[in-house]
Structures are given as C-alpha cells and as structure tokens.
Write a protein that binds this DNA or RNA. Structure first.
Lengths: 345, 345
DNA sequence: TTGTACGCGTTATCAA
DNA sequence: TTGATAACGCGTACAA
C-alpha cells in the first residue's frame, strides 16, 4: 500500500484575512506593512484578525516580486574543521542582524560538489554567496562566468585571485614568514614545508611567506623538502611520511605546516616513526585550531581571528549585494603568533 | 553623496528564452523539464539558447506554485561545540542528496533568539525545521502552537518531550547509568553530578541514568552534590566551583558531567583548586568531544555518533515533510563507553 | 506538437 | 482612505 503523500501545510493568506473582514487585500497589506494611508480603526481590526488567524507573510511571494530573497549561500570545504564553525558563527551573527538567512553547504573539499551547490543556490535565487573554495587547478572559467552573470560573491579564507571577487582572509604571507623566522631564529636551518594546493590564496601566500623567510636569512631551500598535499590531517600525514622516507641526513630538522590539521597529521607520522617532537623534528602550524593547545607537545601556530573573518565576510557580501559601487578588495585581518612547545621553545 | 543602491541581478526568464526563438514559454518549459511532447529539433534549439543565455529556473516562482521550497531550517544552540558541526555535516549530506538546502541558525543558547529565528524560517516557508532547543522552562506553549500550525518539526539532541514532536537522540539514560556504574565499580561512593537544565531530554535522561545507577548500587545521593547549570564550559566551571566550596569531608570523590564541555570547565576548576585528576577527584563526561582524548588527563566519556544523529534527523524530517502518516517517534542511537584516564583507570 | 489562460501570494500603480 | 488590476516566473489544464 502506498504511503499517503502529504498535502503541504496550509498557510493563511492576505486574501483570506481580507475576506474575513470584507475589505480588499490591499488594505490588509497596507495595515500589515505599516503604511501611512490606512484608517486607524480598520487597521486595528485587521491586526486583530491577523493575529487570531495566525497570518504570516509569505516571503516567497514577496521575493518573486522584489527578486530579493534575503538569503546568502555559504560554501564551506569542511565544516568539522574547528576554524569553520567559528567563521560560520560570525557570518550568521552579522547576516541575522541584517535580516538575512544563510544556506550552509559542505563540499567535503570537492570542487565538483562546489559547482553543483552553487548552481542550486543560484536556482534558489540567493542574493549572494560566500565561498571558501576547493578548486585546485587553474581553470577559473566557472567563476569567471559567474562573475559575468552579476551574482554577488565573496571569497573567504580559500580564495582565488584575479577573477574579480573580493577575498576576506588574514595576513597569510607575513604571518607565515614570521613563524618561519621564529624557527630560523631558534637555529633551525634545514626546514621543510608541508604545503596545500598553491592555486588557493592560503596555499600560495603561506608558501611565499615561508620562502621569503628562508631567502631573507640566506638559507637554501631544498625542493625535496617541499611537499604538497591536502589541507587536512590525512594530507599532513602523507606529506610528512614522504619527508621521513628521505635518508636521515637529508631529513628536515623542522617543518612548517600550511595549517594545524596538516600539522596534526604530520605529528602522527613523526611519532609513528619513533621520533620526538621537537627534539628530533620541530613543527609549527597555522590556524590555532581548538586542539592546538592540547596536543602533545602543544603546537606553536598562528592564531587566526575566525569569528572576525566570518563577520567581515558577511558584512562584505551584504554590502556587495546592496550597493552598486562596492569595490572588489582583499581584506587581511591580523593574526597573532602563538608560541608553544612544538617548535622547541 | 548617497551610495548607488543596486538593482537586483537580472536573471534570464523563460519568456526571454521563448522570445529569442519565437516560440511560447510552454514549449521552452517542456523542453527544459524533459517532457515527452516536444519535437526533438525544437528541443535541441531551445537547449542551445538556454545554455547560451545562461538560463536557470527560478525556484522561487516554482515554490510559490507548489508551496514547497525544498528547504529545511536547522536551529542549533552553539555551532562551535564540536558535536554540532558533525551533526550538521550529517544533516547536510542527507538533505543535499534529497535536493534540499539547509538554513543554518545559531541561537547562542537563547530561547528568545530561537523563537525569532523559527518565525523567520516560517516566513521563508521552509518545508520543515530541525531543532536542538534552548528552552529551559516549562512553558511549552510556543511549540504546542507550532505543532498545531502543522509545521513539520523534528528535535535532535536537546528535545522537549510530550509536545508531539519526534526526537532523534541517543540512549542517554542507559549510557549515563553505565558510565556512572563504571565509577561505582572502581570503588567511588561519594559521587557528584554536574547537570544541565532538566527540562531538556538530555538534561533529564542523563540525570535519571545517574540516579538509577546510584540507586541500583544502594549508594546515597546527597542533594548538595547535584548542581545544575548550562551545557557549556562556563556552566561546568561554575558548577564545579560550587562543589569545591563544600567542606573537604563533604566533597565528592568523583563527578559525572552531563557533557564534555561541562567536564572541561569542571576540570579547569579542579586544577585551579590545586587538586589532581583523578587522584583527588575523578571525572567523566558525555559526548566524546574532539578534545576529550587530548585534555590532561584524557577524559573518560560516552561516544555519541554525531554524524549519524545528523543523518537520522535529516531523514526523519524529510519523511515527516513528505508523508502524511509518518509517526512521531523517539529514536535512540547507540553510544559507546570510552574509557580513558580521568576516571582513574 | 504547440499555444493560451489562469493561478500561486504579494505589492505597485492608478482610479475611485 | 480604499479598491481594482497587473505583474513577478512558472506550470497545470485545457484548446488548437
């Protein structure tokens, strides 16, 4: 026996309220929206019936007229990385205070899913989209077409440069240089780098900061010590194991990881190899993940103001939605070095 | 000078595509929706123009007709607690695979905000709402009225009983009894309980599990050792400090916390009092937060299948939306005891 | 196979 | 101050 398909929940409409009172829908509409030109008496009566019948305006119908949905799409690679929930919290807070709702989507680092959800969000006529992208090749055509379509977009954290979309991030390059210099100042010379995809802002900028520090201190950079993999624990684990496969004399004595999850994965690999942190290999990360202060040894890292990134991203997309002349810009929020024990302090 | 207000992004409509080809909108509509009765030749031409003009169907208009938005509201108390992102991931995965999008809202444990966002979601005509509630009094009128309105709702994790709404959770009571018994079996007799609000399922059930264990083993329950506070670190910190204010002879030798964040806060309080865990006071939690294995000492706790809770919650709300006869039910997913060192193992 | 008329719930516009 | 009408973009139901 087939199940009974549900008729959708019946909502009270303006027409029904109007019929109840014997007035026109326009009068009810005006009363509800506090327009000036409606008699106080009738308005009072209308409002009574409105509450009695439990009328709620149908925003879908409004959106159809105004082509505005007060809705923002948020595209995130991995919601369970502690950085992102904090960002989402910031986004939600600002969006909510401007009467926007957010559609949250998780792409699991898949650019294919990213494209699919963006199409879905577009079909739902979101007013704008906030994206932390998972694109890892050089084919920007998808975003170029979107930009041309006029859809307001803002990248945050994982941005693509030069496609005409604002980016809300942090001072990745200088912070990465700083934390690398911290290792150098401690006397480390042979330093490896566990990179993420370099097509993305954070992949590129953090790597450049690392290189800059090495160059600045006249340290040679061995290409074999630069391993590129994903932005997560697994990526860090595999990348580190590649370094550990090198002959002992060629191994790095310290490692800079593109972010904390990668550092955690690398720490696992180091421990599994029977080596000590930081005595045998020192390591630093980037993010200040909630676990960074708890792992053993506590991880030296760069604190990113995730909540602020979220707030800034939300306010930027809202301005981009609402104002024609809002400029495309890159915003760098300021990070803070957090020295713990993994670097040999 | 005032800023230029943006005219909303112009989207291509069926009518425009039709005009371009000199056919009717219906023909285009049929072609796009793969209806059988349209000539292969014209269909081919239409699809070309559709892609060339970048047409995307307007789901807002569709929703107005069908009164179905393929949208689910998700109401969460605190997105930065590691349990919730994992749940959200599960929700998003299932929702997405059924072509639903999710509106994420964070209430910061405020029932006032909870009411406000639910009204907003209703106005946006979501098909249903998933809620982990922050209600902490006995006034269920808000939800009773919502149920009467026919809006599909499903609670998860933090549920309210007896209002006719399904609840997706875990075997809170038996798991709480089990972990309490684990302490009892280790020889602890004077055991305290750090509770959350008992109006909510997890507050009530976990407390009852604790009581059941004590009763079962003929252990006296000292009311002074049961402290109620919030579900977060701060709540645990304050609650534990209340216990520590007791004369040494009356202090508990072990403490059961309603969840891991509360346990973390309590551990801070214990350490600040100069006491050792578990030597002076043992402690156990509930959740298996991402930090549980990393804190010092590692926290004995109950593992909740957060991702599964999310998947189940999403599939339940979708069924509730789609089928008239979907029953109201309480689903208990199975947890697992995770023994670590905080309980004196 | 293709086209026309109407309605979903609301608001802008113009008329009364 | 009020009301009638059209329109937003689409699909159903019917007619051609």
């Amino acid at each position: 026996m087939p199940r009974e398909i549900k008729k959708s929940t019946k909502n009270v409409t303006l027409k029904e309220v109007a019929a109840e009172l014997g007035v026109s829908t326009m009068t009810v509409s005006r009363a509800i929206n506090n327009r000036p030109n409606v008699d106080e008496q009738t308005k009072k009566k209308i409002m009574e019936v409105v509450t009695r019948m439990g009328y709620t305006p149908n925003l879908v119908a409004k959106s159809l007229i105004s082509s505005k949905t007060y809705t923002i799409g948020v595209v995130i690679p991995e919601i369970s990385h502690s950085f992102f929930p904090e960002v989402v919290k910031g986004i939600e807070e600002v969006a909510n205070s401007h009467n926007y709702q957010i559609f949250l989507t998780n792409t699991s680092d898949s650019f294919e899913k990213e494209k699919a959800v963006i199409e879905a969000l577009r079909a739902k006529r979101v007013d704008g989209i906030l994206i932390s992208t998972s694109l890892t090749n050089n084919d920007y055509s998808f975003y170029k077409r979107l930009v041309e379509s006029g859809l307001p977009m803002v990248f945050f954290d994982r941005c693509i440069s030069d496609v005409g979309i604002s980016c809300i991030g942090v001072n990745d390059k200088s912070a990465s240089r700083q934390i690398t210099e911290h290792l150098i100042n401690k006397g480390y010379k042979r330093i490896g780098y566990l990179s993420g995809p370099k097509q993305l802002s954070i992949g590129k900028d953090r790597f450049e900061g690392f290189m800059e520090a090495m160059l600045l201190h006249n340290l040679p950079v061995d290409e074999n010590l630069i391993i590129e993999n994903g932005f997560n624990e697994k990526g860090g684990y595999h990348a580190m194991n590649k370094l550990l496969e090198l002959p002992v004399s060629q191994r790095p004595r310290a490692v800079v990881a593109v972010n904390d999850p990668v550092a955690f994965g690398a720490m696992d690999a180091i421990r599994e190899a029977g080596l000590r942190i930081p005595e045998d290999i020192a390591i630093v990360g980037f993010t200040n993940d909630i676990r960074a202060s708890l792992v053993n040894p506590p991880l030296t890292t760069v604190h990113q103001p995730a909540f602020e990134v979220g707030k800034k991203a939300a306010s930027k997309i809202i301005k981009t939605i609402e104002y024609e002349d809002e400029p495309v810009e890159n915003v760098e929020l300021i990070t803070k070095l957090v020295i713990r024990q993994s670097c040999g302090s």
